[in-house]
Nucleic acid binder design. Sequence first.
DNA 1: GTGAAAGCGCTAACAA
DNA 2: TTGTTAGCGCTTTCAC
Lengths: 335, 335
Amino acid sequence: MASTDVTIYQVAEAAGVSISTVSLALNHPDRVSPKTRDRIIRVAGELGYRSGATTSERARRRSGRIAVLAPFSSYETYRTRLVGILEAFGPHNVEVVVHDTPSATESASPLLETMPVRGDVDGLLIMGVPLGEEGADRLHRWGPPTVLVDSLNAEFTSVTFDDEQAGYLLATHLLGRGHRSLAYLHEPYRASAYTSAGRLRLDGMARAIREAGGAEPEIEDIALAGNDVASARAHAAEFARRAERPTAVIAHHDLLAAGFLSGLRAAGTRTPDEVAVAGFDDGPLAEVLGLTTVRQPFAESGRRAAELLRSLIENPQQTPLRTLLVPQLITRETT
Amino acid sequence: MASTDVTIYQVAEAAGVSISTVSLALNHPDRVSPKTRDRIIRVAGELGYRSGATTSERARRRSGRIAVLAPFSSYETYRTRLVGILEAFGPHNVEVVVHDTPSATESASPLLETMPVRGDVDGLLIMGVPLGEEGADRLHRWGPPTVLVDSLNAEFTSVTFDDEQAGYLLATHLLGRGHRSLAYLHEPYRASAYTSAGRLRLDGMARAIREAGGAEPEIEDIALAGNDVASARAHAAEFARRAERPTAVIAHHDLLAAGFLSGLRAAGTRTPDEVAVAGFDDGPLAEVLGLTTVRQPFAESGRRAAELLRSLIENPQQTPLRTLLVPQLITRETT
DNA sequence: GTGAAAGCGCTAACAA
DNA sequence: TTGTTAGCGCTTTCAC
């Protein structure tokens, strides 16, 4: 049962005017005499009238609503970005509808072919989900203005993080500390597809090694059993027992770094003396643990994307724009 | 510009049928011959038709949409609960609209008097925001089915956490460890109002002390300068220097406990030997730090609330129901 | 300044 | 099985 029980008809009747006057009083207050308007407003208040936007949207040709698609359940970071989005749209009286998606690593094919998003939104924000060829096409032809976060497509405006540079920064830092063999720790890739961020970071690290005059870039790739603290900790125990091992471990995000760190500690391996550990994100976890990491401006990326979308909604004809967020190295005690 | 440019009229024309057949094919596929249906679906696809729910809602008398109100930007826990909500509603094809609210401690008066929520939702989920007298009244009279999370009201179905019992459990544990003087560490209360959870926990702790035959319940109340790691850490430094001090510190949530912990460590004060530290929530932070804490089933509380709301939407006449989530003590190394 | 009336796109009786 | 048609609640011309 939609809760819009009170209609303008009822308000009109109670106020002794016609429905159009009520509508006018509500939408174009200046076109109604102050006296009538005040009476209508008062009556509407008493009756508990609340514009069932549902219907108004039709005439207005705008829903005042955007949809956000992201793997919210899989990654906390997308929830953090959501905050930035809410901050950007809230004040403008735009509703934000959230849709959870399976994460890219969990879903086999470039998904989004079948979007569960209703048509009645003014804009779309797609985060952390690669756009398939066909999906991009459909979206481009029939979709509302759309902004991509964490994925790229020539047809769409996007906000991404400079992962290559982030990897470069971190590796450069570690090389400077004398490390020569690195490892990259990450969640399991279920789909062969999309590993973009990790790939780019590895590229950046390789670049750092080359620039440092290192011979063959030597970066061990470690896929964990799961994307959580426990998996990282478990692997650390194993890692600690190895005779030969990298001297620095870079985790795909702070949580994994934290788990690895605690696993090392449990095994009696010292940080950073024996093994250096770094992460990505710079959340509270990193701050508390003294973890060297690369800061990602999550809330800001959300806000930025939201603002781009707002502008795109105002003027849908804009050419696609790519925004690249600059990484910031945060050096602490673990490296 | 709403993106619903293609109407069923166009689809109908292109498919050579009437609009009602299109509507039927889309909503009650079984009532249309497979052949016609397939053709319609295909044409609709080609044209890029997407049901502008906007209009359908009217006839259906349901919007297929609920709104969630919570201090998302202030507390991560509400974002976590959102995941549970999405899980509960997603499969049922219900849109979830999120609204950020100032947190209860930041807003002077019991807010919610002026809800920014549109009328066209089938249900409302209000988390972490106390319902003012008047607000409850309005909501009850004119609002959609509503479920409260983390706050109570006789008129509404609610899901809350048993904070009193949580405090009791934690204090009992600490008393058992020989502690006699406790401190409760929390964010600053900006508003004199709503401190409910903290108050209840203190009550529970006091009960534990009384039951243990302790004389006067002795719990020091510490209000930090901010609700973050840095504030907790800063206070820990001060705390470490005190001549007389409680031997156990209970933080309002893990983040504060973590900050306090790291502050103590920096000051050379050992845990748990000199000072025991415990938190609330049991997020990854607690797991990594080995923090004793009380687990709060966040995602589940969201899911539970969502399910109650679903049922309430189906049958709005149900009498209000109170669900109390049971706390679970997680004992680790910091106590 | 206000009212009458024509849609907005769609669903659901009801007819055919 | 399919088409016709009366609304759903509201906005917006266009008269008055």
